[in-house]
Design a protein around this nucleic acid. Structure first.
Length: 353
DNA sequence: ATTTATGATTGACG
DNA sequence: CGTCAATCATAAAT
């Protein structure tokens, strides 16, 4: 109660005011009346009254009384105060933001990812690294938004704080306000704004999580290889149709050329073999008498120089460019392991994780 | 909105 | 391990 520190009314026993002559008693009552009905007056009127009150000779004394009373009540009021709560939740959010490079030192900013992308495309192959690049792109987008909002809130907080302080200072001319009170008020304001920033952090974290699941979780958000990469792969495939099993070195070479990983090359060839075979048996098996362009289905193989040997000729090991091969209806499942010793796969057998 | 193309994953096999 | 075959999940095409 009495949050403004006016304290109890003075009127019950005006005589208690020390040696004040009884002639001033009516003075005081008059004064109090004026104060009490001050809200009934218009603003201009009130300003005038306020000024006269301020200049009243009794004002300092009354103010002093107010201060004393407040001093007493405040003492009993200073209790149910709990200090700032550490809030482990917020700490976790902060940790995550720092770990993700969103909070903390502001490095790179928006143009960093863009320049990385430019470098990648300039160097020739804007592929697999692409996914990292636009991951970073999105991340820095989030980061800039985060910082923008953060600064906005900080600024708003400062503005509001100074406003409140000015208000309190202004009011301290007419009612007693201790420095501690101001400090407390400021702390409350800061706390409120901190909680808002906490929400900002939370939603930022959520955005990052979504981004992660969208980009880093392979198999989701699949990106097709670039035109050039598939061309290179197809070229190798169709020029080694007789034995489309690239060695480890060949895979590395292809991976380098296409700017994809060796695992991706393996995946590609695995898919290609099985799907090529499927298409052959489906649409081309009958139409294979020709050596030219057997079917519309076989997508412009002409582009890759070598023509597809019809399935019946896969058995033909006469002209096999590769070491061994005799394939029944399809390629042999027998595979040679070339030097199982050195393996430098950094990512196991796929990009996952 | 539905279908096709395609990169990645999974389990079986040797 | 590397491969096949089936399957998943999405990108691209219709």
């Amino acid at each position: 109660m009495d949050p403004y520190g006016y304290g109890p009314r003075l009127d019950p026993d005006p005589k208690s005011m020390g040696g004040v002559p009884s002639s001033s008693q009516s003075d005081i009552n008059q004064l109090l009346d004026q104060i009490l009905c001050i809200t009934d007056q218009t603003l201009d009127e009130a300003q005038v009254r306020k000024h006269t009150l301020n200049c009243h000779r009794m004002k300092p004394a009354l103010f002093e009384v107010l201060c004393q009373i407040k001093e007493k009540t405040v003492l009993s009021q200073r209790h149910g105060e709990q200090e700032d709560v550490p809030d482990p939740q917020l700490a976790r959010l902060d940790n995550m933001l720092v770990a993700e490079g969103v909070a903390g030192p502001e490095k790179g900013r928006g143009d960093q990812a863009a320049s990385t992308a430019a470098a990648a495309s300039a160097s020739g192959q804007p592929e697999t690294t692409v996914e990292h690049v636009d991951y970073k792109n999105k991340l820095s987008e989030i980061r800039s938004i985060y910082h923008l909002e953060f600064e906005k809130y900080e600024q708003a907080c400062n503005e509001f704080t100074t406003h409140v302080m000015n208000l309190l200072r202004e009011q301290s001319r007419t009612r007693p306000i201790t420095a501690k009170e101001i400090e407390r008020m400021v702390r409350i304001v800061h706390q409120k704004f901190l909680s808002i920033q906490g929400q900002l952090k939370q939603s930022t974290c959520e955005a990052i999580m979504i981004l992660r699941s969208r980009f880093l979780d392979t198999r989701r958000k699949r990106r097709n290889f670039s035109k050039k990469a598939t061309e290179v792969l197809n070229e190798y495939f169709y020029s080694h149709l007789a034995n489309p099993y690239p060695s480890e070195e060949a895979k590395e070479e292809l991976a380098r050329k296409c700017n994809i990983t060796v695992s991706q090359v393996s995946n590609w060839f695995g898919n290609k073999r099985i799907r090529y075979k499927k298409n052959i048996s489906k649409a081309q098996e009958e139409a294979n008498g020709y050596t030219g362009k057997p079917t519309m289905q076989s997508q412009h193989l002409e582009d890759y120089g070598l023509m597809l040997p019809p399935p019946s000729e896969w058995n033909d090991f006469h002209h096999t460019p590769s070491p061994h091969l005799h394939s029944p209806d399809h390629w042999p499942a027998e595979h040679h392991q070339i030097d199982p010793g050195l393996r430098d796969d950094k990512d196991g057998r796929s990009l996952t994780r």
